[in-house]
């Protein structure tokens, strides 16, 4: 009998079907957001056209972190949106799911979406930045400066896009998350700040560029606005740059930057999620 019980326990443990654990979610913007995006003449890690960029703010509204299974079983879901400034040193704690049935939850998703008045702050963030997101219904606010030689361009872009990142996976961890029995798993929702500056929406040869963004400053006041980006047709830019792949109706630099903004969400470092515009 004892042997049979031990065997049964072993089977239960091995299957991961027994007990429960917790999942702690954090977020981090890595060095590109906390520090800077450097010049990179070697075309591997930074701007290929001589610019260096430093963010002053990279505020995102993270919400709807959800666990589920492909079999149809629903897991816990985040109900309170969190406002985070990723320029502050991280990783930043976001939320925790307690008493989650242990085992594999192969569908993990989250959203970056417009804030409402109930959005709460997470980590070190200025109260005024939280209030800007709430009152403006913003999902992201990115502000910074790019410098090339003696030229500096500033930008401060409010975005109110709603993007869900679905089916997150990571080569090292697999799909979703495996909740341990009686222990905690820490999961990082990683935000890639360099994606705003890619020069192609699909090509494997995409590079980081800022020349076209800087040139959009039509009035030459040093501030590149979203209206100025909207005035630049992609047809005014060199062929071979700012290709749109299969993303239809991306015609201006503003369209392009908005499309890129929907790709910043990643999973546990370099892991990916399907980006779904809502």
């Amino acid at each position: 009998m004892k042997t049979m019980m031990m065997g049964l326990c072993a089977v239960v443990l091995a299957s991961g079907c027994g007990g429960a654990g917790s999942v702690q979610f954090t977020t981090w913007g890595e060095a590109y957001i906390e520090d800077k995006i450097p010049v990179d003449s070697m075309e591997t890690t930074g701007f290929v056209d001589g610019w260096e960029l430093k963010y002053a703010r990279f505020v995102v509204v993270l919400s709807e972190v959800t666990l589920a299974k492909k079999t149809g079983e629903a897991g816990p879901k985040q109900t309170e949106a969190k406002v985070v400034d990723l320029v502050k040193k991280g990783p930043t704690d976001l939320l925790s799911f307690a008493d989650v049935p242990s085992g594999k939850w192969d569908l993990l998703s989250y959203a970056i979406l417009p804030a409402t008045s109930t959005a709460a702050s997470a980590g070190a963030i200025d109260a005024a930045d939280v209030e800007r997101m709430r009152t403006g219904g913003l999902s992201m606010f990115v502000e910074g400066s790019a410098t090339k030689g003696a030229t500096t361009k500033h930008f401060a872009w409010p975005l109110a896009l709603n993007t869900e990142y679905q089916e997150c996976t990571n080569d090292d961890f697999g799909e979703g998350v495996t909740v341990p029995n009686g222990a905690q798993e820490v999961v990082q929702l990683t935000i890639h700040g360099d994606h705003f500056w890619y020069d192609d929406l699909q090509s494997p040869d995409a590079k980081l560029r800022f020349d076209a963004i800087a040139s959009a400053d039509a009035n030459g006041d040093g501030e590149v606005t979203l209206d100025e980006l909207a005035a630049v047709q992609l047809t005014a830019l060199p062929l071979g740059q700012y290709g749109t792949g299969s993303a239809a109706n991306v015609k201006t630099l503003k369209d392009f930057v908005f499309s890129l903004s929907r790709t910043v969400g990643h999973y546990r470092g370099e892991g990916h999620c399907h980006s779904h515009a809502r």
């Binding site: 492909k70 699909q202 090509s203 494997p204 995409a206 790709t263 990916h272 399907h274």
Partner: peptide, 14 residues
């Protein structure tokens, strides 16, 4: 569907 690999929405990562 899990039998085949998938693609991810990511610039440069089709």
């Amino acid at each position: 569907g899990w039998l085949v690999p998938s693609a991810w929405a990511h610039p440069g990562h089709y």
